[in-house]
Design a protein around this nucleic acid. Structure first.
Lengths: 204, 204
DNA sequence: TTTTCGACTATTTTACCAATATAGTCGAAA
DNA sequence: TTTCGACTATATTGGTAAAATAGTCGAAAA
């Protein structure tokens, strides 16, 4: 019973923090504000989390876990490999959009949080590579795909996805969802994906 | 005759500046230093260039022009379209490497120079799109390529190229050519290019 | 025993100002 | 026409005090 209550408290904190971070970015949120949102004194937060960074990490982890759950759902489903890849990328676009807000990545936001969740990010990327690799190898096995270095191709795809994201993060005045740019980013990402799938050369 | 001498002076300044910028980055180079390198007093520089930024722009423009010249050479040559694209990308990798040093893009370097040559960059991208589009349409005409939206594909390719560059610029301690990362970046870029060319799906 | 919090400390960020450094100007001289 | 020494204006830096905020601790509430 204790467990349950504690988990509720933790979840409440993470949720409150998530909303604050999404609105104002990591550095512009104070522990006092989070505490007030959740109806506690600041000191009480430190009963559940050792540092502010730990809270932020939990927020990110929460998003990543949810994504991986959904991604595994896509991997399990019985559809063609190319559709799976597309679906995976679409899912990833959603995650990207959510994470983008967490610390106002544009301007300097990225540098202030990079050290905080560098490791989180690294292990997440490994999970991602495993997902994409799984799709590629499955497609290869069923004869749908033809490729020589699935490992390298998987990491290339993910690097491009990250790169495109960064490329479109550069516009400075994009606060809370610059629609035209976001749309262009998503179109381009999907266009990349289908181009990788089908190539542009005629003969094979 | 006057013309010739003036051009020599201008070239000397641009060259000296180029070397300084490549070693120390835009903000860490003073007009006095450039002047000394070229054997003039600082005030004399202002006879040839209105501002420091103008010098920097000239340096960038010089690199870009040289690249475009070589790129046009590639476009003219009589080879298959896929090879042309690969060659274009290889050329572009070289340009990238040169520009990367000009203002220590990593850390904050990028922000300080962005406004300076935003417009230069914009028109350069247009040239690039024209180049890639040219290759794509030529390939389409000869029946080598099969693609529906050459325009969109061209801009996608260039966005990915920019994105990959940014993706690999992130490592913080990469002063003056972190070899392993640079190599990975170039491999990945070329892998992307050939994947776009041939796709990974078996059937067409 | 577990959880909360008020009051406290330590550390970081901000605000400000003087000192320095550097971009850019100007008129005279080569 | 071109160069430069001496000048001004502007931006950067260094240092410091004030303010904000992360994080601690022991006592009280549950």
């Amino acid at each position: 019973m204790d467990e349950k209550l504690t988990r509720d408290k933790v979840d409440g904190i993470v949720h409150a923090a998530q909303r604050r971070f999404a609105s104002f970015g990591y550095s512009k949120v104070t522990m006092d504000e989070i505490a007030e949102d959740v109806g506690m004194a600041k000191a009480s937060l430190y009963y559940y989390f050792p540092t502010k960074e730990a809270i932020f990490r939990s927020v990110v982890q929460y998003e990543q876990q949810e994504f991986l759950t959904q991604a595994n759902g896509v991997l399990q489903q019985k559809s063609a490999a190319d559709l799976k890849l597309l679906e995976y990328v679409r899912l990833r676009l959603k995650l990207t959009q959510r994470l983008n807000n967490l610390s106002h990545f544009h301007q300097q936001g990225w540098h202030e949080i990079k050290p905080i969740f560098n490791d989180l990010f690294a292990t997440f990327v490994e999970h991602e590579i495993r997902c994409v690799l799984h799709i590629l190898q499955e497609g290869k096995k069923t004869g749908e795909f033809q490729l020589e270095h699935p490992q390298k191709t998987a990491s290339m795809i993910l690097h491009v996805l990250q790169g495109l994201r960064m490329r479109f993060l550069r516009g400075e005045d994009q606060q809370a969802g610059n629609e035209p740019d976001r749309l262009l980013f998503e179109q381009e990402t999907l266009h990349f994906t289908s181009t990788v799938l089908h190539g542009i050369c005629k003969c094979k």
